[in-house]
Amino acid sequence: MPAHFIHETDFREFLKSLIASKPVIGPVVEPKSTGDKFIFDDVTSAEQLRLDYDVSLVPPKAVFFPPVQKLLEFGPNGVKSCINPREQVLLGVHFYDVKAFDQLDKLFNDKFPDNNYLANRRATTVIASSVQTVSKHAFWGSFGKDVKAKGHDGFLTKVQGGYVYETFSQKGEALLKHGKFGNASTDQVSAAKRENDAAMDKCQEKVTFTPAEISTKTRASFSNNEMWKELSKDCFSCGSCNIVCPTCYCFDVQDKWGLDQVSGERYRTWDACLTEDFAKVSLGGAGGHENFREAGAQRFRHRAMRKLTYLNEKLGGPACIGCGRCTSACVPNIANPVKIINRIMKG
C-alpha cells in the first residue's frame, strides 16, 4: 500500500479543495455541547473539521444507515424504490469505527444484499484517521485488538509536521490530486506506525480475556438467570446502549402517509432490542400477546449474547469494537461491556 505525506501547512488547502469537489462528512463539534462533544456532519470549511476528536456521540454508521431512512415511495400509480446515493467523502473515521463498518458491510450483504445500505456505502470514500485523543471509556486497545480494520479507502495518521496518508483503493488514491502530497519517507511511515501502536496502550479500560474465551463463557452463561437479573437490575429498557452502538443494526419498518393522503413512504428507523416490545407479537383471537423477551433481564442478556458470542463466527471477531459509547450513554451505568464481561467471566 503506497504511503504519502502532506505537510501540516498544506493540509488546509487540501481540505478546501476536497470540500469544493464533493460533500465531505467529518467529525465536528456538536453545536449544543460546550465544544467537547463531537458528531459526524457535513463539513463546510476546513476549520470545522476536528481530527483531534475523541469519539462521536452518534456512530458514523448513520452516514450509510441513517436513523430514519426512506425505503420506498408509494402513491396512486404504484411504488418505487428510493435508493439514491450521494457521492461523498467520509473523513476522519477512527479505526474502531472502520471495524464496525466492515461488520455492517458483511451483515447487510449476507444472503439478501440490502442496497439501501450498500449503495450509500459504495458511493462513499472512507478515509480513516489516527486516534489523537482517546475517549474515557474506550477499550479497543485490548478487546478484539487482533481484528484488523478493513474496507476503508485511505488512512491519515498525524505525525510530526504533517500527515502520513496510506491509500488502499482507487477511491483513496483519487483524493491525492486535491493536495500537495509527496511520497512518505520510511521514517515517516514508521513514525505513523508508532503513533497508531501507541494509541492502543492509552485506553483506560481494559479487557484481559480473549474474545474466544469470552464467547464460550458468555454462551455457557445463558441460563445463569441470577447473574442476568443482577446485571440488569437497574435497566429501564431505554435502548440507548443500542442506539449509540456502531455495530447495532436492528431496525423497524413503518409506513406513513403524505399530507395528500394518497401517497406516502415506507421507511425504516433504528430499533433497540432492549426496549420492551421488541419481540412482542399480537396473537389475536383469544391469544392476546406473546412477548418472546418479556423480562428486562432477557433483553439485557440478548444484547450481551449478540455483542460477545452470536455473531463472532460470521464476523471473525466480537460484534463489539470497544468504543465505549454505550458506557457513556447508559444513565444507570450498567451497559459497560467491560463490566459485563468481567462479571460473566467471574461466573
Binding site: L72, F74, G75, G78, V79, K80, S81, D114, A119, S263
Partner: peptide
C-alpha cells in the same frame, strides 16, 4: 417499477431494493 406519481426526487434506479414488493 412504475412511477409512484409523487413528483419526488428519488431516482427510479436499477439498483435492486429488497424491500420492493410485487
Amino acid at each position: 417499477m412504475s412511477n409512484c406519481g409523487n413528483g419526488c426526487s428519488c431516482n427510479d434506479s436499477a439498483i435492486d431494493n429488497v424491500f420492493l414488493p410485487r
